[in-house]
Write a protein that binds this DNA or RNA. Sequence first.
RNA 1: CGGGGCGUGGCGCAGCCUGGUAGCGCGCGUGUUUUGGGUACACGAGGCCGCCGGUUCGAGUCCGGCCGCCCCGACCA
Length: 436
Amino acid sequence: MVMRLTHTLAPTLKETPAEAQIVSHRLMLRAGLVRQTAAGIYAWLPLGLRVLRNIERIVREEQDAIGAQEMLMPTIQSADLWRLSGRYEAYGPEMLRIRDRHDREMLYGPTNEEMITDLFRQSVKSYRELPQMLYHIQWKFRDEVRPRFGVMRGREFLMKDAYSFDLDYPGAVVSYRRMMLAYMRTFRRLGLKAIPMEAESGPIGGNLSHEFIILAPTGESQVWYDAAFERMDFSAAAISHESATDLERFFVDMTTHYAATDEKHDEASWARVADKREGRGIEVGHIFYFGTKYSAPLGLAVAGQDGAPTALHMGSYGIGVSRLVGALIEAFHDDAGILWPDAVAPFPAAILNLKVGDAACDRVCDDIYAKLAGNALYDDRGERAGVKFADADLMGHPWQIVVGPRGAAAGIVELKRRSTGERHELGIDAALARIG
RNA sequence: CGGGGCGUGGCGCAGCCUGGUAGCGCGCGUGUUUUGGGUACACGAGGCCGCCGGUUCGAGUCCGGCCGCCCCGACCA
């Protein structure tokens, strides 16, 4: 589906809405990706949705690649399950509580540990069925006291959450490392530099809790890390997610170098780092092992080899999908607008018809439009060139195919790479080949 | 939840102190003009001034209550 801008809901703004403070929020509103409908709640307009879907797709592919199974759990949950784990009381006002017409207590899920544990318990009875990993990509709601930063900290947000089930601790460790690998691959494909940083592991202890921080100059927290992370290559072929040995080597690589946020930063350890790097970061993922925290109270146990019931060791793994849209913009923008990485851009290219109505321009644009089926946003508005350039830069398409009366007659277009500003005059087919 | 601020055409704002029938820029429509980085001119459409109540001959403006949104802090995928 090629979209014609004249018939697309992509309302760009010249001025910055007063409520937006940080750059990603401003640009998301100005580029017409989202609109706020209530505090911390956003409607995703066509272009914003395409970015969200692209991120989702990459996340999904990398989850599938390590053998996680996709499912979909509901947004509305019964309070009863949460009473079993004790979290109905513990969660506090951040949980959106609802009553249905029969006065039953319900809630809009902030996460799904209880539900997945209960579902798994109903059907899995033997150690022979383990291990398993399940995930879903679903909207969550946390009634933040103070939503801010646009989709970076909304109340409603799209999250990928995965859950692992293992018979014992060593098995859970393998699952944990496997997921860490999937995360590194995911963030790299999104064009981001992500660094796993040890996080609070709660009552379980150990070092099996990591936050994934991406580097962005406008990030919300200060981070300190070893430059070794910048040199690491997590190429897909190098590590097998099925080899416990590969996974251990990978895990050691990931965790021996220093990396910390404000909360965990330690000057003594920092002093021993040879090649220091400091920067700003945004948390986009979190993985942790929590043992039998939910399996025990919810009665999730299977028959082990000896026939005796064993409570399962679980872990959960989140990626903030909608937050990533904002985080990506924080990482990739300039004064003119967004610089989408190719993998997530709403469209790889925009076609700018600088003179709608000019026979040659229209003909060349129609030709490109047909050849790019599905891969371009065609600016067919009767606007001046400057307006089109400004909007294309703002929206951040990786490539701009500029069709003006000067070159169109000769079948020449100008191809502009948004990220570098490079421009080349090329024949139509040569330009299309460059875009790939 | 503590502290601060703001609600006036789609967006950004003025008007409120010192009540008198709502204004500017951008955007939108029509026409002319311009034609490779947000063109210029003319005409035009569009607002129960967040809501409810009070004071007053008269309320966007004063008083009370409510709702919504934003910022700083504590908190967080």
